[in-house]
Simulated scan of single mutants.
Amino acid sequence: MLNKSILMGRLTRDPELKHTNSNLPVIRFSIAVDRNRTGQNGERQTDFIDIVAWRKTAEFVSQWFTKGQMIVVVGSIQSRRWQDKNGNNRTSIEVFADEVQFGDSKKTREGGTQQRQNNYQPYADPAPAQSYNVPAANDFSEISDDDGEVPF
Rank of each mutant, 00 (worst) to 15 (best):
D34Y: 01
S131R: 11
V100R: 07
G75P: 11
P126L: 13
G87N: 07
R44L: 13
A124F: 13
P25T: 07
D125M: 12
I51D: 05
M70K: 15
G103F: 03
L24W: 02
A53R: 12
Q40I: 07
N23R: 10
P122N: 10
V73G: 10
Y132M: 14
D139W: 04
D145N: 13
G68P: 12
W82P: 03
S30L: 02
Y120C: 00
Y120F: 08
G68Q: 03
S105K: 03
W64C: 07
A97K: 04
Q78R: 15
A97F: 07
R10V: 08
Q45F: 06
G68I: 04
E59Q: 14
A97I: 03
T66H: 03
T38Y: 06
D104T: 03
K67C: 10
L7T: 09
I51S: 02
V95T: 14
Q83V: 05
R13M: 07
G87H: 09
P128S: 11
A137N: 06
E142C: 01
E16H: 10
R44Q: 14
I6Q: 10
Q83E: 13
P128Y: 08
R44F: 09
T108I: 10
E94G: 09
G75F: 05
V134K: 12
Q83A: 04
E110A: 01
R10W: 05
Q40G: 00
W82Q: 03
L11N: 06
W82H: 00
L11Y: 06
D50T: 10
W82Y: 13
N119T: 06
D146T: 12
A127I: 14
R35S: 01
P25Y: 07
T113C: 04
N89F: 08
N86Y: 14
G42N: 05
I31L: 10
G75C: 06
L2K: 14
G148I: 04
N41H: 09
P151M: 02
